[in-house]
Design a protein around this nucleic acid. Structure first.
Length: 365
DNA sequence: GAGGCGTGGCG
DNA sequence: TCGCCAAGCCT
């Protein structure tokens, strides 16, 4: 069994120091970060900024997150401001970023921190873990980066770096516990936050999925996958399933005043709580029946085009129908001015649908 | 444990 | 062009 002293052996310290030296010179500058120089001086990043960015970064690229992070910070400068915001405003601000359960949990988490923690984030991995939307990764990341706790932070980047460094050939996700143990061994007590960010920067900029820049890597003398000449073969992952195709119809009803019929989706599940135009069910096969039977109200519905959109686990093909109409008071939902669509919580697939029916509906799409 | 859950960029 | 996938969480 490892003694506590073995938890940070000479070899591990050497690897950590190599990485931290690399990070001091090559760290990325991101809106939610402080510099390694500031970190070494004892400064800490704002926990609200780190938490907000980490939730946005779940399965999402840095480039996509940046403008959303800045927008949220401008609208809601503190976690208390976010906690006090209306749900619809948060969902509308999140629209386009995807995985909308994150936005619902973000709001719940802000409310919990504001009400039960006096507006201050818990400063340990255990205290953070289990707050809405905070799992293994995010609790460790916030604890390490915002509070300098020696938490073992493992995301997709770290999995790639570790699997290559040790040439771990067991497939993910089964190999996660082994990899996490390796990360724990490597994490230094001195600069755990910088170490975590360094591992992720390395994975994002050097140890990339395709064509990694091994010549520039601080681990290139240590990497077992590189020794075997095939870093790209790691990490090994379980085979994934084929995506089924679902089909349906979407209905864009426009009044002479330029208003569009919208409705809100149910709170849970796909695009939960987001806004949409009326649609049929999305099914594996078109379920027969005429357009009139499925439309939100009878009328002259004309086909405007077909929208294809790829979700995580299926591909959707929506036939878009449009009609000019008088405002139908009995229709389910509400009538929204077309020039106010940007303020709605419209997911990207619905922006595509509306843009197909009304090419001038969005200034920018 | 495995499947549900978005989107845009890139090779 | 299009398959792949990016700082995961929840059930």
């Amino acid at each position: 069994m490892d003694s506590p002293a073995d938890m940070h052996s000479t070899a591990d310290t050497s690897l950590s120091n190599k990485l931290l030296s690399w990070y001091d010179r090559h760290h990325r500058e991101l809106p939610w970060r402080i510099t390694p120089r500031e970190s070494l001086a004892g400064k800490r990043a704002d926990p609200y900024h780190i938490w907000l960015s980490e939730v946005m970064l779940q399965q999402t690229t840095v480039q996509a997150v940046k403008p959303y992070f800045l927008k949220f910070l401008a609208k809601w400068p503190t976690v208390g401001d976010l906690a006090a915001a209306p749900n619809e405003d948060v969902m509308a601000a999140w629209a386009g970023l995807g995985y909308y359960a994150r936005a619902r949990n973000l709001k719940k988490c802000a409310e919990t921190v504001a009400k039960e923690h006096d507006g201050t984030f818990p400063d340990t991995e255990e205290g953070l873990r289990g707050l809405p939307g905070i799992g293994d990764y995010t609790s460790a990341a916030v604890a390490a980066i915002a509070f300098n706790r020696p938490a073992a932070v493992m995301d997709g980047n770290v999995e790639r770096v570790i699997s290559r460094l040790y040439a771990i050939s067991d497939p993910l996700p089964g190999s996660k516990p082994l990899m996490k143990a390796r990360v724990k061994e490597l994490t230094p007590l001195g600069r755990p936050g910088d170490f975590a960010q360094a591992m992720m920067d390395l994975g994002a900029t050097i140890c990339t999925p395709k064509r990694p820049a091994c010549a520039l890597c601080p681990f290139n003398a240590d990497c077992l996958a590189l020794k075997a000449h095939d870093p790209e073969h790691f990490p090994v992952k379980a085979a994934k399933k084929e995506k089924p195709i679902r089909q349906g119809a979407a209905f864009v009803a426009v009044t002479s005043d330029g208003e569009i019929l919208l409705r809100r989706r149910v709170e849970s599940g796909l695009l939960g709580g987001m806004t949409e135009v009326p649609t049929t069910a999305w099914t594996a096969r078109l379920d027969g029946g005429t357009t009139e039977e499925h439309a939100p109200f009878p009328g002259e519905w004309h086909q405007a085009g077909v929208v294809t959109h790829v979700f995580t686990h299926f591909e959707l093909r929506l036939t878009v129908y449009r009609t000019k109409t008088q405002k139908q008071p009995d229709a389910d939902g509400w009538w929204e001015k077309a020039d106010n669509l940007e303020a709605q919580a419209l997911p990207t697939v619905m922006k595509k649908v509306i843009a197909t029916a009304l090419p001038n509906a969005f200034k920018s799409i």
